[in-house]
Design a protein around this nucleic acid. Structure first.
Length: 248
DNA sequence: ATGTCCGTAACCTACGGA
């Protein structure tokens, strides 16, 4: 089974990149973030064999799980948090949760407290599941787990994405029984999944690792990589897809 | 690093968000 998580920064704007990518890479389960629409292009992906579970209400956020190995027990509401930032479903043998964690904006912004609260409720939600079963949570977590996951840790002093509170919030997910699936080393031996559109950051390979696939030990991981080519060329998202092959 | 891109509302530009 091939899994992918990709923050597409508008599924509507990204269709000319997304559809060929899906055809070429043929993932079985796809987790998309920042779909930025209330009306997912269901017919376009149905023609490629995917069923869709989409949570999206308009201009911001929006997440989707696409599957061609079954889509059951769909949940689109994250208890206590109305923004469309979580979608989950049973995809054949694997339970899949797609998340778009709040950005946080800045440490003194109410959105930062919201981010931490959102993490807490995501951790509480795990209590409904069994870490001995095949399960993944994948998406844009808006956290760089270690200093190695940003191009220059000193730049981030006093910023979101790197604070001990954010990192421990994510660590609590791992401590429940999830493994942070490591992609093959990228260019320059850096693990980035995101490069800001501004300031030639991609060209300079100044990025961040903020997209993750977290899997229980019941998920046998065969391979994992970041498709940097999808971040290049005409009309890319600012995130690259993280692809994981599993023996399920 | 602050060099771009997205969708929207309201108009052919400005804004919030990332």
């Amino acid at each position: 089974m091939r899994l992918v998580t990709w923050n597409v920064n508008s599924v509507t704007a990204r269709l000319p990149r997304l559809l060929p990518w899906l055809e070429e890479n043929a993932p079985d389960v796809v987790a998309l973030q920042e779909t930025k629409t209330a009306t997912f292009p269901v017919a376009d992906v149905a023609s490629l064999g995917y069923e869709v579970a989409h949570a999206g209400d308009g201009r911001w956020n929006g997440v989707a799980v696409l599957s061609r190995v079954g889509l059951e027990r769909v949940e689109l509401v994250h208890e206590g948090h109305p923004e469309p930032r979580l979608a989950s479903a049973q995809c054949g043998p694997l339970h899949v949760t797609c998340v778009y964690v709040p950005n946080g904006r800045s440490l003194d912004d109410p959105h930062y407290a919201y981010k931490l609260a959102w993490f807490r409720s995501l951790r509480a939600r795990l209590d409904r599941f069994d870490p001995a079963q095949p399960l993944v949570i994948m998406g844009d977590f808006n956290v760089a787990l270690t200093d190695r996951d940003v191009w220059d840790a000193s730049v981030f002093t006093g910023s979101t994405h790197v604070t001990p509170a954010e990192r421990s919030a994510m660590q609590e997910l791992l401590d429940w029984g999830l493994v942070d699936v490591q992609a093959r080393p990228g260019k320059g031996d850096v693990p980035y999944t995101y490069w800001d559109y501004r300031a030639g950051m991609m060209h300079k390979n100044l990025g961040m690792r903020i997209d993750y696939v977290l899997a229980t030990t019941a998920v046998p991981v065969r391979d994992a990589w970041v498709d940097r080519e999808a971040r290049k060329g005409k009309g890319p998202s600012d995130h690259a897809p993280l692809v994981v092959d599993v023996d399920l």
